[in-house]
C-alpha cells in the first residue's frame, strides 16, 4: 500500500458515493448511463469472486464488499426506485460491442488460464471501457449536470492515481502487472477529453457543456 494507491481507492469510493448521493438527493438518475452502471456491477462481481476463496486483508475485504454493494445499490435506484427518471433514450450505446470483444480478449490474453483469473482479466478489460456509454450519453445530450461531472472526475482520477501507484511499485517493489497497467492507461486516456472540459469549465464555475 502506498499513498497513490490509497488516494486512488479513496477517489474511487468518493466517486461511487457522489453518484449515489446525486441520485438520492435529486430523486433522479437523469443523465446517468444505466449501461455504464450495469457494466461496473459486472466488473466488481467478476473481479471480487476471490472474496469467497481468498482473504487478503480487512481493508481489501471491506472495500470489495462496499464496491459490490454500492454498484448493485446504484442499479436498484436506477432501474427500480427511480426508474421513471432514467434517460434511456440517450443511453443508446451497444453494450455487446464492448462485452463480447472484452470477453474474447480475456480468454486470449491473461496471466493464467484458470476460471478466476480469466474472470479477473475480463473485469480489468471491461472496466477500462465501461465508462464509454456514459461519455457517449454526454456527447449526445451535449451536457452533464455538475454533480455528474464531479462523479466522472473522481472516477477518472482513481485510475490516473493507480498509474502513479504502478510506477511507484515498479521502482520500489519491482512489481509490474502488464495487463493491469495497459488497461489502466487505456481507461485513463478515455477520460482525457472529459478532464480538459472539466478543468476549463466546471472549475471556473460553469456547467459542463460540449463545444458546438
Amino acid at each position: 500500500m502506498n499513498v497513490f494507491r490509497l488516494t486512488g481507492d479513496i477517489a474511487h469510493l468518493l466517486a461511487i458515493i457522489l453518484l449515489l448521493m446525486k441520485i438520492w438527493k435529486t430523486r433522479s438518475c437523469a443523465g446517468v448511463s444505466g449501461k455504464s452502471q450495469m457494466m461496473f456491477a459486472l466488473v466488481f462481481t467478476t473481479r471480487y469472486l476471490d472474496l469467497i476463496t481468498n482473504f487478503i486483508s480487512l481493508y481489501n475485504t471491506t472495500m470489495k464488499m462496499i464496491f459490490i454493494a454500492s454498484s448493485y445499490g446504484t442499479l436498484y435506484l436506477m432501474f427500480l426506485k427511480f426508474r421513471a427518471t432514467y434517460d434511456s433514450n440517450h443511453d443508446t450505446f451497444r453494450m455487446e460491442f464492448l462485452v463480447v470483444p472484452v470477453a474474447g480478449l480475456s480468454f486470449l490474453v491473461n496471466h493464467d488460464f484458470s476460471p478466476l483469473e480469466i474472470l479477473w482479466t475480463f473485469s480489468i478489460y471491461l472496466e477500462s471501457v465501461a465508462i464509454l456509454p456514459q461519455l457517449f450519453m454526454i456527447s449526445k445530450t451535449g451536457e452533464a449536470e455538475t454533480i455528474t461531472s464531479h462523479y466522472l472526475f473522481a472516477l477518472g482520477s482513481y485510475r490516473a492515481l493507480y498509474i502513479l501507484n504502478w510506477v511507484y511499485r515498479f521502482y520500489f517493489e519491482g512489481f509490474f502487472d502488464l495487463i493491469a497497467v495497459v488497461a489502466g492507461c487505456v481507461q485513463t486516456v478515455l477520460y482525457c477529453d472529459f478532464f480538459y472540459l472539466y478543468i476549463t469549465k466546471v472549475w471556473k464555475g460553469k456547467k459542463l457543456t460540449l463545444p458546438a
Binding site: 481507492d9 474511487h12 481489501n60 472495500m63 470489495k64 496471466h111 509490474f176 502488464l178 495487463i179
Partner: peptide
C-alpha cells in the same frame, strides 16, 4: 514479479 496471483489491488 510480473503479476500478483492474489490481486491485492482493487
Amino acid at each position: 514479479a510480473t503479476y500478483d496471483p492474489n490481486h491485492d489491488e482493487l
